[in-house]
Computed example of a mutant assay.
Amino acid sequence: MGPKHWVSWFAMSIAYLLSFLPWSAQQGIGKYLGRFLHLLAKRRRHICDVNLQICYPTMTSKERQVLTKSHFESMGIGTIETFSSWFQPQSRFQSRITFEGQDVVDKVLAEGRGCILISGHFSPLDICGSQMPRFMDVHPIYKLQTNPVMNWVMERQRKAIFSKTIERTNMREVLKSLKQNKAVWYAVDQDYGRKNSVFAPFYGRQAATIAHIGRIAKMTNAPVVLYDYGRTKTGYYLKLTEVENYPSSDDVENATRINELMQSVIETKKEQYFWSHRRFKTQEIAGSPSPYDK
């Protein structure tokens, strides 16, 4: 509550007020917020363009520019959606949710070993994630935020929605949740550094990919379920699909499978993906220059 955090609390107040706007108004404001950020965030624009050059080498400069702008618009909308997920009752959005996969939930949990949900980072992450407890008891893995005000608000919201959240380094709680036949949710498409990763192809480029999904699945025999979600013109969809014949005994093979699954869900909604994150920041050969260095 000290003075150094007053700006953050003021920002949270604005976020709180925006969360009360009608859904269509939030979508429009979010789009313009994204366009504004597109103009200001030069570094993020560069990261996005580099990622698109790597992942879509045949895409023209003009096509990359169009997709980059659409990406920022989607991220702006996602920001407003996050505010709604923090400050509004989840029942407000139920009519806009389409869910596919109750048969998958019933099947994997009937085995009594819990399950591991895997997903990517897309702009409607928070609004879609907040709806998952309607269909299964999900324990999301999260990373602490550097801003203590945002971290407090985020944790408060998640504790109100989820029966349990797990800080990403707390493996003991992950295993405990699986033993209790709960779903543990990992977002598996970001670069967490050399120590926690193996290198596997992502859109044809070697990328640091977390290795412990396959290891946990092998250790616990917990089934792995792909969680696909996204924004539509009228709301959101959530879809669960069991990953068959996983894991193998090889970490790189498992990571390659994970990346292939991520590519399959990205292709249906490219603009919603987090292209402005440095997916390729860790190089396969230590000391090699980052592709994001100008």
Rank of each mutant, 00 (worst) to 15 (best):
Y227V: 04
Y203A: 12
Y227E: 00
E81I: 01
T79C: 07
L40N: 00
E100S: 13
Y142L: 12
M12Y: 05
G235K: 01
Q190H: 14
V243C: 02
P124R: 02
H139C: 15
F93G: 03
H121W: 04
I141W: 07
V188P: 11
Q206F: 07
P57D: 06
F122N: 02
V184D: 07
L40W: 06
T232A: 04
S61A: 13
E111H: 07
S130E: 06
H46M: 04
E242V: 08
I118Y: 05
T68D: 01
A200S: 15
L178E: 12
P89W: 02
N151H: 15
H46A: 03
T282Y: 08
Q26T: 14
V224M: 00
K107A: 12
F93E: 08
N170K: 14
M132H: 11
D189K: 03
K69F: 04
K281M: 04
L125E: 05
D189F: 01
M59C: 02
G287Q: 07
L39Y: 06
N147Y: 08
E271Q: 15
F122L: 12
T256V: 06
Q283R: 15
W86H: 05
D250P: 14
M75Q: 14
K270M: 13
G101D: 10
Y236R: 00
A208D: 12
G101E: 06
R257I: 08
F36S: 10
C128N: 11
G114H: 07
D189P: 13
R194G: 02
H5A: 03
G30Q: 09
L117A: 03
N221Q: 15
E100C: 00
I118P: 12
A15S: 14
Q206W: 10
S197K: 08
M136H: 09
L175A: 08
Q131R: 06
V184H: 07
I141M: 15
A25Q: 11
M12K: 07
K179N: 13
Y142R: 13
S13R: 14
G112T: 09
Q190N: 06
A200V: 11
G120D: 11
R35G: 00
W6G: 00
S19H: 10
Y237D: 08
Q180R: 14
R43M: 00
P133L: 09
D137R: 14
R279T: 10
I97S: 04
T60F: 04
M262H: 03
E253K: 15
P289M: 01
C48F: 00
F202D: 12
G230A: 04
G76D: 08
R156T: 15
Y237N: 06
T256Q: 13
E271K: 11
V224E: 06
V184S: 05
P291V: 13
E81W: 00
W152H: 14
K159A: 12
Y203I: 09
F135E: 14
W185N: 09
L18G: 11
R35D: 10
S19C: 10
L39T: 08
E244F: 00
